[in-house]
Design a protein around this nucleic acid. Sequence first.
DNA 1: CGGCCGACTTCTAGCGCTGTAAATTCACCT
DNA 2: AGGTGAATTTACAGCGCTAGAAGTCGGCCG
Lengths: 370, 370
Amino acid sequence: MAGVRLQDVAEHAGVSMKTVSNVVHAHPNVSAPMRERVQRAIDELGYRPNAIGRRLATGRTGLIALAFADVRLPYFSELANVVSKAAAATGSGYRVLLEETEGTIEGERAVLSASEAGLVDGMLLQPSQMSSREIAERHGDLPMVLLGEGPAPLSVDRVMIDNVAAATVATEHLADLGRTRIAFVGHENEGLSWTSRQRIVGYQQGLESRGLPVEHDLLIPTGAIASDEAARAVGEAIDRGIRFDALMCRDDLAAIGALRALHERGISIPDDVAVIGWDNIAFDATTFPSLSSVSPNTHELARVALEMLAERIDGYDGIGRHRLVDFELALRESAPGSLQASGATSDAASDVDADVDAGASGSLSHSLSA
Amino acid sequence: MAGVRLQDVAEHAGVSMKTVSNVVHAHPNVSAPMRERVQRAIDELGYRPNAIGRRLATGRTGLIALAFADVRLPYFSELANVVSKAAAATGSGYRVLLEETEGTIEGERAVLSASEAGLVDGMLLQPSQMSSREIAERHGDLPMVLLGEGPAPLSVDRVMIDNVAAATVATEHLADLGRTRIAFVGHENEGLSWTSRQRIVGYQQGLESRGLPVEHDLLIPTGAIASDEAARAVGEAIDRGIRFDALMCRDDLAAIGALRALHERGISIPDDVAVIGWDNIAFDATTFPSLSSVSPNTHELARVALEMLAERIDGYDGIGRHRLVDFELALRESAPGSLQASGATSDAASDVDADVDAGASGSLSHSLSA
DNA sequence: CGGCCGACTTCTAGCGCTGTAAATTCACCT
DNA sequence: AGGTGAATTTACAGCGCTAGAAGTCGGCCG
């Protein structure tokens, strides 16, 4: 039943509260018979420690906030899953409080300046709008680790993958497939995000390293980070006469939209146009054709981020540490490994089956540790 | 700065703690000059109330748990988004603590019998494995509302859509499109979930109401709730010689997998096979062809669930209330509205564009309130 | 056989905030 | 001027738990 307090257990067992507390915490210096007697009392009363009371006393809440734009974006929901599992696996067994910023500056401010303090022990934040100065100013003394390639003040820890390198590798892969007109899809129409900026830089580097020209026409922005917007933008570009034989997409949502726009126009993938997405979300394996994608190592990202956060919570107070985690290219049908460069048309059913099965069948891995 | 306590503010302003507390809470009966004086002290010290302290004193944490199988499933991530927005909009401004059960009985038990009590004020749980008896036994006195069509003891509140009715309507729509061999895809290979069970019942009712025979061969189970599993299962069924002209899918993941299996084999959608999914996830608008889907009113679901939960938290102690919220059929290319029954081939670019834009273009709405 | 040591348990302050009840102040009447 | 009730403000006792100080008890050494 509810409302059984430590004191009730103590009385029931005829001992002091501290002894009960010691039993609950498996402290040493409790004799076996005593331990058993107390445990029986706990069981009989159905006692469960009250989290809030404990937390007031210890100053730790066991909660960390995970803040990003929107759980509905597959990358973030997959991240939430990974982080919450990793957090639970932590020694301290953290639980995760989800906060959505909607990708707006107001949302990010709201998350950082919550009017109440002390609810969470620390925060994992993936900022998208806020300047690094503002982040530095606002986070106050809340232990924090930033995720992703967004703004990051030097004073705060951060984990990310090397977006420039990843975009370069992916673009080079398309070039190595023999593509010469590689377009970039999915950056913001206006107000380029940090993410888009870096991926475009990498895209350009990839083109240059393969001796391909950089054409402004081949940058296809979208109105929002959403597959329908991408479908429209790519469709319009095609209809406007823009020609390309490969698409480097800012993210998988853009890639999925692009897939649709190409299908609508009867353009064959990857024969006419190869496509690479970004994030390697679960759907990539079952789009048609299945989607090659830049695959950040989110497990490692979560692990490193939580590790640094735990250190901050424990009082570490050094300068911000910036860590890179690795990524790989998950190669699927939309931009296969170079061996099978152009290859069979994509309706070879049995081949495809095997591919779906293997998930990230071929992959180029890149470890860049810090 | 950190660690400014109520008492510090009180001393700084030369008043009692309670007066400061009153100012913080905008209580009446605080004179204007006093309010201003205290406010200045608060600002000068940069005081922010400590959530844990307050919560210990009030007994409320302002947190509710939202527990379901896996955030990575789009339906759940969309639900999480809706619930957390709705919860924040509540008078009490609840925050949402995410809990994943992995869809296993152990996970569900873990969520229900968290060893610590008092962390959350209440819980929204979408069970999938646990029996209603076990739910009733375990939830103890934690205010709780169940989501979805899973098991629900009579003593606990629950919100769901009428899955049987929805499946019937969707199946009938396929029949009205002239389809006579309508298969059902995506239920579990073994250990049918409550969800699948009800949707299959509705599917059967839909067939019967249109005078179509129910064939066991047309039930295509999958190994897991995942699009790749569905792709494989549908592919195998086709390869085994099973013939159908429409697919009623247990969920959108199954539908997306089915889409892929059909594409691989060069089967035209919706001309050869029409497809209806379930959940109306965001991707449905940009699959190719776009996917018709049963669209539960999740906003309403969240609203009703939170409302009931709030009442439970406030001490309401009646018998379990079971509420239905409405759904509609979001009709897109994979199973269009009956007017355009077979219609143009799906690569009519401009038409399609408009369609993508409109999202759930045509829709049959069903309000079933309780 | 008394005293001292170590092992174990109890005592007792809080952690930061809120709610109730009591105290104070103040404007206004008679 | 004394009294009254309303409006404010203060005092204080916890909410449930933890941790360090203080106490208790049995055993062992001299």
